[in-house]
Amino acid sequence: MEFALHWQQGDAKFEDRFLGRRVNAWRDVFPPALMEKLHGCSPGEAASASYCPGELVDPYTLDKVIHLPVTRFRKRSLGGRNVSPKVGRFYPLGMLSGLPGIYSSTITPFRILEIDGETMTVDLNHPLAGRPLTVEAVITRLQEKQGDTGGSLMHWPEEICYGGPGMQAPLPERPTEFFDEQFFSRSDADDATFYAQPRMIGHIDEQASANLRSMYRRFLKNGMRVLDLMSSMQSHLPDDLDIDVTGLGLNAEEMAANPLLTEYVVHDLNRDPSIPLKGHYDAVACSLSIEYLTDPVSVLSCVREQLAPGGVLLVGMSNRWFPTKAVRGWVDLNEFERVGLVHEMMRRAGFDGKRGVISMRNDWRPQGDRHFLETRGVSDPVYMTWVEKS
């Protein structure tokens, strides 16, 4: 059963998809009223239910908004850099000292709302608390249960709502303070040498790539002119559409092996953020590479200039990258927070049109994949953030 959690903040739409495996309709806990609507449905059929704030996650309460000395924030070293508290950011509760029932290993997130001198205001509510939510469920496969004993009970509202959903959205009144002087530093800044040799490998598994293609498909139509930014041997774009795709990347051999590219240009965006191409594009897609940019706002500003009015920027992400090439600040963030980071980059680059996020987690990894056993058959998560040029 594939669940889709829908929620909204302002004009931004969020859709967090999660594949429920081995769902037991008799034993498991479901969102209220949803299983009753699914009763009697066949594979491919769906049902949805809407929930008021507090029905799927704990209700928002002011007693979970507390004031603490900044000294109660444990500054940990991650990747050789100290992590300091920043307004709008989420952190594991274990980074706060002196709270009853909280240990250094506690990973439940909290958010910093304000820092005023030596005092900080923190929000311990669930990231989705206070929001109306809608859950859609699609039955993907039915199988008769072989026995009535054994197995485990799954609490699907927790599986769907916990682990990051809600952390994509900024505070209502101010942008998140993501950046510091070390945010865009990298352990390996020599792109020319690193990308001199082709790497004919995919960053994500085949199912994750298919999920990303399906997300892109929602925005792409026949006849579109598309720029594949930071392109390589694989674009993750739908291969059954009649679209004109131009690749912009760092290795000609990789792009020459990409069957979707009509043409390609070798260009280093970290040396020069401009786009050395003529004409406007209906869509720009950047797949699994945004974390390598050392000046992404300048690059996205140039992308905005290349987009036709009403065009769309699509940025696909996962949790896999070349470790030495990703900027340090990216690695520090929760996967869902990275989506919020990309939205903030888009805002700074001048994008102010409609926007949103689609994510997919817990899908099946193909059994023939070489990482199948170590991942317990779980496909790589994918996230796609989009914004239109107004």
Score class of each variant (00 low, 15 high):
residue 364 W to C: 08
residue 337 E to G: 15
residue 294 T to I: 11
residue 273 P to L: 01
residue 330 W to K: 00
residue 295 D to P: 09
residue 284 V to K: 03
residue 244 D to S: 15
residue 275 I to E: 05
residue 302 C to Q: 14
residue 318 S to T: 13
residue 293 L to W: 04
residue 288 L to F: 09
residue 255 M to Y: 09
residue 359 S to H: 01
residue 324 T to F: 00
residue 348 R to K: 13
residue 360 M to D: 07
residue 327 V to G: 07
residue 320 R to H: 11
residue 362 N to M: 02
residue 303 V to S: 06
residue 324 T to L: 05
residue 325 K to F: 04
residue 281 Y to N: 13
residue 304 R to L: 12
residue 256 A to D: 00
residue 298 S to A: 15
residue 276 P to R: 00
residue 285 A to D: 12
residue 316 G to W: 06
residue 292 Y to N: 05
residue 321 W to A: 10
residue 368 G to D: 07
residue 348 R to T: 09
residue 361 R to H: 05
residue 289 S to W: 01
residue 303 V to E: 07
residue 357 V to F: 12
residue 329 G to R: 01
residue 331 V to Q: 02
residue 284 V to R: 03
residue 341 L to R: 08
residue 297 V to H: 10
residue 310 G to P: 09
residue 289 S to L: 07
residue 334 N to M: 03
residue 369 D to E: 01
residue 260 L to W: 04
residue 278 K to I: 08
residue 318 S to Y: 05
residue 295 D to C: 15
residue 298 S to V: 11
residue 365 R to I: 03
residue 306 Q to F: 11
residue 307 L to F: 09
residue 262 T to D: 07
residue 338 R to L: 08
residue 299 V to F: 05
residue 322 F to W: 00
residue 329 G to V: 10
residue 332 D to P: 05
residue 245 V to E: 03
residue 279 G to Q: 08
residue 344 E to Y: 08
residue 323 P to M: 00
residue 268 D to G: 09
residue 340 G to S: 10
residue 330 W to P: 03
residue 291 E to R: 00
residue 267 H to W: 03
residue 355 R to A: 15
residue 260 L to T: 12
residue 344 E to T: 13
residue 264 Y to W: 03
residue 272 D to Q: 01
residue 340 G to N: 06
residue 355 R to N: 11
residue 313 L to F: 14
residue 277 L to D: 01
residue 242 D to T: 15
residue 263 E to V: 15
residue 297 V to E: 11
residue 284 V to H: 01
residue 260 L to D: 10
residue 296 P to M: 04
residue 299 V to R: 00
residue 306 Q to K: 13
residue 248 L to Y: 10
residue 350 G to R: 07
residue 322 F to E: 03
residue 321 W to P: 02
residue 249 G to H: 01
residue 312 V to I: 09
residue 352 D to N: 14
residue 250 L to C: 11
residue 290 I to V: 15
residue 320 R to P: 03
residue 332 D to M: 09
residue 349 A to V: 14
residue 355 R to Y: 12
residue 294 T to H: 08
residue 282 D to C: 05
residue 287 S to M: 07
residue 315 V to N: 08
residue 280 H to L: 13
residue 287 S to K: 09
residue 244 D to A: 15
residue 263 E to F: 09
residue 258 N to I: 08
residue 341 L to C: 12
residue 268 D to S: 09
residue 341 L to I: 12
residue 356 G to R: 06
residue 271 R to Q: 02
residue 347 R to C: 11
residue 298 S to E: 12
residue 242 D to W: 12
residue 317 M to E: 03
residue 340 G to M: 07
residue 315 V to G: 09
residue 293 L to A: 12
residue 254 E to P: 05
residue 261 L to I: 03
residue 305 E to F: 09
